[in-house]
């Protein structure tokens, strides 16, 4: 049985001090550096100008009107509708009313879009460059070393995970190569970073990759870039037009009396 035989490899204890330990320390330090680098690279959130704010909030007003219409009496609702729908349709709240009807700007040439993409680029670079550097550093200095033995047995499947860079078929899975130690660190240091840097750190590159998968999830905002605000206003006008209004004030006195009589 393979398990019965215990492979013994005599390792120089210096391997521990000069490979395992340095890799770990370097990984932690890069994580911290990356965190502060990202913080520094982050552009300050762009101030919205007053016109843009007016546009967003005017649309928001329409949406709240639609959602909370029941608090109004019929005549008040009608009055608001009479004001807001024509204003929406004529594009009165648009940032620049002249641009109404024109196709939305190309996101590649739109300066706002460019800025966003620059931000993403910076983030990517902050992850990519250190990763490449360290990987090549480890590869050129420490490749092919067996540096530690796990205290528990594992199945053969873990071989590729724990022994990358050591092409030996018969070696027990419990032995870990230096390159694998790097990968283990890369993915496993999250909790240490959380301890050192707090909860929302930018040190871990897994989180960064996750964010790349679905951009815009955290971005928020009513208008995604490239969307035509005029279209949204038209849509909202239509929504308001077809809204069937009811009011919460209908029969409120009956409800109240029923309520109070029971008590």
């Amino acid at each position: 049985m393979a398990q019965a035989l215990t492979q013994t490899i005599y390792r120089d204890p210096a391997l521990f001090y000069w490979i395992l330990f340095p890799i770990t320390v370097v990984m932690i330090l890069t994580g911290i550096l990356r965190h502060y680098g990202t913080v520094l690279l982050q552009a300050a959130p762009k101030k919205e100008d007053i016109k843009g704010r007016r546009e967003t909030r005017s649309l928001l007003r329409g949406i709240t009107l639609r959602n909370n219409a029941p608090v109004l009496s019929r005549s008040s609702f009608q009055a608001r509708k009479n004001y807001i729908i024509p204003a929406y349709q004529s594009g009165q709240f648009l940032k620049d009313p002249d641009a109404k009807g024109q196709p939305p700007p190309n996101p590649m040439t739109d300066p706002a879009g460019m800025e966003q993409m620059m931000g993403m680029m910076k983030g990517n670079m902050a992850t990519m460059i250190p990763q490449t550097l360290i990987m090549s550093w480890i590869n050129s200095f420490f490749s092919g070393f067996i540096i530690m033995k796990l205290p528990f047995p594992l199945t053969i499947r873990f071989k590729s995970m724990l022994q990358s860079g050591v092409a030996t078929r018969d070696l027990d899975v419990r032995w870990v190569s230096s390159l694998s130690w790097y990968f283990l660190n890369l993915f496993g240091l999250q909790s240490i970073f959380t301890f050192i840097l707090g909860n929302d750190n930018a040190a871990n590159q897994m989180a960064a990759q996750m964010a790349q998968m679905n951009p815009g999830a955290g971005a928020g905002g009513l208008f995604a870039p490239g969307q035509d605000p005029d279209k949204m206003f038209q849509n909202e006008a239509e929504n308001l037009e077809v809204l069937e209004h009811w009011t919460v004030l209908d029969g409120v006195e009956e409800r109240l009396l029923d309520d109070l009589d029971i008590v």
Partner: peptide, 23 residues
């Protein structure tokens, strides 16, 4: 026809007044 809800009946108003006073 304007779609306003019908006004409450006299009995309701009286009852509301009583309840408000009691409360």
């Amino acid at each position: 026809a304007a779609g306003e809800p019908a006004p409450p009946t006299l009995a309701y108003v009286q009852r509301l007044n009583e309840i408000a006073t009691a409360k």
